[in-house]
Design a protein around this nucleic acid. Structure first.
Lengths: 346, 346
DNA sequence: TAAAAAAATGTGTTCGAGCACATAATTAAA
DNA sequence: TTTAATTATGTGCTCGAACACATTTTTTTA
């Protein structure tokens, strides 16, 4: 109620010094006598002084430049929401003097990532936001940013080794457990389950780990869970491979697809007479259609939009207002059904 | 890349007028010749001028005061996260000159609501954020705010009648459909279902509506769904009433509890030998415990934290930066299981 | 002790928008 | 035409923090 907005001038008056001295104390720039310093600090503590961020910013009046390093969404549609999230955050921070340029790389070519990250560095940015798809190259970039004190944040997939710094994304092990819990609820105790890895990166193994640990902890008798890793370029006949897999494991009544490719399986199983439950990832249009149709039971949402939005926001608020970036933000693992999907798709 | 920050001074120079004139054009304060006005507008359009929000704000340097009108969380624990959400948003906007005072009312006493809303009005706020628990009284407040041009936003439950203005919350009908979809997945086709309303407000009927519509649309043969409305104060023996209900409807294998009181039922059913699936609402500690234990299958999250956070944020950004408040923001209907609950609880 | 060096403190300008006030240009009235 | 009234335009200060620079005070050195 009685909250007064104190300014540096107020502090100066209360402490009996000039605003210059107050300023030096606040930013410990030195050149202040011990007595003055103590007096000022005391006043600051007493009135709980909060600097006016607006004024601070106006004075600085710097334009901050961020580069984002993400896969080309034309090559993998998963990344469309990422772009939208970046754009949304950009829109919000532009009036505060933020500039962001997006650099795209080919998610299958580590060289392309490297090129773009070199480009980003050469442009002397204030911060970089990246999806660290390639392990070694990402570590490299991290190091270089550290050296040059460029702020950096990453999202989507986590890089071990390096400190857990400034990561935004999902806990993949827990994510696998969520999938397991869902399948457990919609199937009967005795059923067999398949895990399908389709053309995917190594970090997806964590999802399987979580998935299996759920059942291991819940049931005394080990449950029948079969893993099948499938790599194929578009040309090779995926259908055959999968049919073969299913024939070989006829007992399977639910399949966990560890990435966004659930639609491939669901489309194949559409016309089978035996109902096989599918739980997959990501709100691609293809997946959503099948979810609404009942061909996919659940999708787990990795929130690419929000990840990107938060990434930009964190960097912007750090540069503009000096806010600390949380060292790790593990986002909620959203469960999506035909009924609630419309609130998540973006 | 080449984005230059244009200022009013730049516009003035480009248009060959003084910054005073530019200012008058921008805020159409009149007193400007047609030629000057056109010239300035042309320049503004050409360079896509965006006023510097920081500077604008510094000049105004106004302290905005908001009052929030919410139920006393000590009387209904559902509201704790609401308070936290308000506090978080407040923390973020305080450095920009925002002041917010929380006013609490008794959610069972419309008079208490009225008193607090009168108090809020008498304090001449810039904005009010409210949970419109009482229909008529809330409409009143809406009207009065309109008259005095106090900005207002509401959350939690929607008020029909009045325009859908500035509402943040969940679509209750769709929420019921989500619950239905979940129960449908975890039970077999022939099972009977119960809907339980415990001590609840009329707007919960919408959840039932959505719930029933799901089954009506999905199955040709009408499904057996029994509704039971239960009002009782703490003294009366709830246990008996519910046991009676269950005995009378022995076929029931799943129950949909339309508010946060699922824990009451779940605790009663714990020791039954027949497993009855429960789907309920809200992440109260009591509910979470039972969810983790497997006594509740799913909870639907109404996001009270986020509702409140967004409510304050919208008001603040409107007052501070002139952003438009979305007329309606229907939040995602989060599905919570034992495995993902930890990411949502706050 | 005076002069020089170092340390402490104070002053004044800047950032961009907004607004009060001053001045200039135009039109209306005498 | 001259003066008054009206309208258009320009100038200068403010908001709070930051920082360069000026000034004062203290300490060190010759």
């Amino acid at each position: 109620m009685t909250e007064k907005k104190y300014t540096i001038k107020d502090i100066a008056k209360l402490a009996g010094v000039s605003k210059g001295t107050v300023d030096r104390v606040i930013h410990n720039r030195g050149r202040v006598s011990k007595e003055a310093c103590e007096k000022v600090n005391q006043v600051i503590a007493e009135i709980d002084y909060q600097p006016n961020l607006i004024a601070r910013n106006l004075k600085k009046n710097k334009i901050y430049r961020i580069y984002s390093l993400i896969p080309d969404a034309k090559l993998d549609h998963y990344w469309w929401p990422t772009i939208k999230g970046i754009d949304q955050a950009l829109k919000e921070f532009k009036p505060f003097g933020l500039i962001l340029e997006k650099l795209y790389f080919d998610p299958k070519e580590s060289k392309s990532f490297q090129e773009q990250s070199d480009l980003a560095l050469s442009l002397n940015p204030d911060a970089i936001l990246m999806a660290p798809v390639f392990h070694k190259e990402s570590l490299d970039l991290f190091e270089k940013c550290k050296e040059r004190s460029i702020v950096i944040a990453s999202f989507n997939n986590h890089i071990d080794k390096l400190g857990l710094e400034n990561f935004i994304g999902q806990d993949l092990i827990q994510s696998g457990r969520v999938a397991a819990g869902l399948i457990d609820k919609i199937t009967n105790k005795k059923c067999h389950i398949g895990i399908l890895h389709i053309n995917e990166e190594s970090h997806m193994k964590n999802k399987e780990k979580g998935f299996r640990s759920y059942f291991k902890e819940k049931y005394k008798k080990p449950k029948e869970i079969v893993t099948y890793s499938l790599t194929s370029n578009e040309n090779v006949n995926l259908k055959d491979k999968i049919s073969q897999f299913l024939k070989k494991n006829a007992g399977i009544s639910a399949i966990f697809v560890t990435n966004s490719k659930a639609y491939l399986i669901a489309n194949l199983l559409k016309n089978e007479n035996k109902k096989i439950m599918i739980v997959g990832y990501d709100l691609l249009n293809e997946n959503i259609k099948l979810l609404k149709n009942g061909d996919i039971e659940f999708l787990i949402h990795q929130k690419p939009y929000r990840q990107a939005y938060l990434g930009v926001s964190y960097l912007a608020e750090n540069l503009l207002f000096g806010k600390k970036i949380p060292s790790q933000n593990l986002l909620p693992i959203d469960i999506i059904t035909a009924e609630n999907v419309k609130y998540y798709a973006n």
